[in-house]
Design a protein around this nucleic acid. Structure first.
Lengths: 193, 193
DNA sequence: TCCTCGACTTGACACAGATCAAGTTATTTC
DNA sequence: GAAATAACTTGATCTGTGTCAAGTCGAGGA
């Protein structure tokens, strides 16, 4: 239940086996079923969540009722509404399981205590945040400079796994195109080989 | 030369006046003129830079030679190509001064030493990164759900200062629209009052 | 096994915003 | 302070992608 978490943490910081036990003790393991929500927009986001197994999406619903996928999170990824988690304000995002999943929740309080007990984890989370920024900046650029087809091909290249596991409408939403356009892109690409 | 840096740091973490002197000692003050580049894409980004005074933009140039503004940074903001800075790989972004500016550079080595000497700064940078993520996610959502005019109005609301100081083409680039479209939006809005 | 309901496909059409081009107005620069 | 250059405006036209609508397919429930 903690394999991926430990693997991911050891990639960024050095921890003794004792530290690892301490680390584990702060997380709440949780199994969720497909379609289950772990966060509803409007509630306060209580956790930053690590995905041991499964697939989630975080998304907003805009004023016209349209859904926009912010992020997919599969094995080894973290997901949260960071803004809500750190400030205690209402969440803007929903988080939903797209597959039966095994999660590790870290509450705000647990995180604060963890950072006191294992200060090296400050570094870990800083690096995590840095990597998140790098990814988000890339995404902003992709939205700015690429056509629908180019965005599709890029995602196919970077995250083929997600492409197979998420539904077309969710992928379309992530790419910020309509399911119809995505369908046509796929058709066109399959015809050209 | 350090007023803004100190002000901004004290908002996030508690430091003694001795700590503040230590903090200052790690930064390299630098004045740059309008149009001067402090980072060229392809070089390694040596600094994370704090803006004491002035205005910068970071931007990429895509394969078609089009520029895309990632970020504006005015007084109190940090700017860097985080990906390059932390990994030592080639920068994807350029950073250019849009006004004569006063900057504080922190090298990678200085940052590492600073974090050893003042571990509380781990927290500071983690919070900085968190806020950056929150802003970037909002921007992704804005790109996904808003029309050109709505994006313009939103930026006008959030950063009216930038609107007055940056050129139309740079604002258009930031909003990912053409200067022509921005010109028409401004005309339309000014006619409606 | 059939029925249902959601997911995907396909076509016809609409439109926001891009592109191209030609003027006008600022801002540099010498 | 005049010439050169860059920035902005405005119009005409084009185009990628959205919208709407009518299928088709496929998996899960009774």
């Amino acid at each position: 239940m903690f394999e991926r978490l430990i693997e991911g943490t050891e990639q960024k910081v050095v921890l003794s086996s004792e530290d690892l036990e301490t680390l584990k003790s702060f997380f709440i393991p949780k199994k969720v079923r497909k379609r289950q929500y772990i966060l509803n927009a409007g509630d306060v986001c209580q956790y930053i969540t690590f995905v041991e197994k499964g697939l989630l999406r975080s998304f907003t619903v805009d004023d016209d009722g349209r859904e926009h996928v912010i992020q997919f999170a599969s094995e080894g990824w973290w997901v949260s509404d960071v803004g809500s988690f750190v400030s205690g304000k209402d969440a803007l995002y929903n988080i939903e399981a797209l597959e039966d999943s095994e999660l590790l929740h870290l509450t705000r309080r647990a995180m604060d205590e963890l950072l006191i007990k294992l200060p090296v984890m400050e570094r870990f989370f800083r690096i995590l945040m840095q990597n998140n920024i790098i990814a988000l900046q890339r995404r902003v650029i992709a939205y700015m400079s690429l056509s629908a087809e180019e965005k599709y091909l890029k995602l196919m290249d970077v995250a083929p796994d997600i492409m197979n596991r998420a539904s077309q409408q969710h992928i379309a939403s992530y790419l910020s195109i309509t399911p119809e356009t995505l369908s046509r892109i796929r058709k066109k690409i399959s015809e050209n080989q």
